[in-house]
Amino acid sequence: MNKAIHPEYRPVVFRDRAADFAFLTRSTVTSDKSVEWEDGRSYPVIDVEISSASHPFYTGNARVVDTAGRVERFQRRYRRS
């Protein structure tokens, strides 16, 4: 690969704070923060909101969030008489 046009491809830690889950992989993404990994080396860390450890599809914990009663309002509005 031409170093002048391709970004640096290096080890990066992706961390899901909600599930207390992290994994080390390779990526071109950059970060100012770093974390010490299990092997004693320091790697850039990217915090993500959701991962396979917290996603309802992978965990089986599907939930319906209806904060404003939208489902009931829809059913009342379009209910057949």
Rank of each mutant, 00 (worst) to 15 (best):
V71Q: 11
V12I: 14
A62P: 07
P44G: 04
S54G: 03
R17N: 13
M1T: 12
I46A: 06
R73Y: 02
K3C: 13
M1E: 10
A22Q: 14
R80Q: 14
Y58T: 06
I46D: 05
R26D: 12
V13S: 06
A53S: 10
R63S: 12
E38S: 13
V71H: 10
R73A: 15
F21M: 01
G69N: 01
S42Q: 12
P44K: 02
S52F: 09
V12R: 02
I5M: 15
S42K: 15
H55Y: 04
R70N: 12
T30K: 12
R70I: 10
E38V: 14
S51D: 03
P11K: 07
D39S: 03
K3T: 14
I46Q: 01
A53P: 05
S31F: 00
W37C: 09
R17C: 13
R70M: 11
Y78Q: 08
V35A: 06
R70P: 08
E8F: 09
G69Q: 07
S27L: 06
A18P: 03
Y78W: 10
E38R: 12
R10C: 07
K33E: 14
F14A: 08
S27E: 02
Y9L: 11
H55W: 04
S52G: 09
K3G: 12
D20W: 02
D16I: 10
E8S: 15
G40A: 04
G60F: 00
W37V: 02
F14D: 05
V29G: 08
F23S: 10
H55T: 04
L24P: 01
R26V: 12
V29R: 15
E38Q: 13
N61F: 00
R17P: 08
Y9M: 04
W37R: 05
R63W: 00
E38D: 13
R63Y: 07
S34Y: 02
S42L: 11
R26L: 09
R77P: 02
T59V: 01
F74G: 09
I5A: 10
H55P: 03
I50L: 13
T28P: 06
G40M: 01
H55S: 08
H6Y: 08
R10K: 15
T59K: 03
H6A: 15
A19Y: 01
D32P: 00
A18T: 08
V48E: 03
T30H: 04
A68N: 11
G69S: 03
H55M: 04
E38Y: 15
R10M: 09
Y78T: 12
E36S: 08
Q75A: 13
Y78L: 09
G40W: 01
A19L: 06
Y43H: 11
V29M: 15
S42A: 14
T59F: 05
G40H: 01
A62R: 09
V13I: 13
A22P: 01
F21I: 02
R26W: 04
T30R: 08
M1A: 14
A68P: 01
R73F: 04
L24S: 03
H6G: 14
G69C: 01
F23C: 15
S51G: 04
F74R: 01
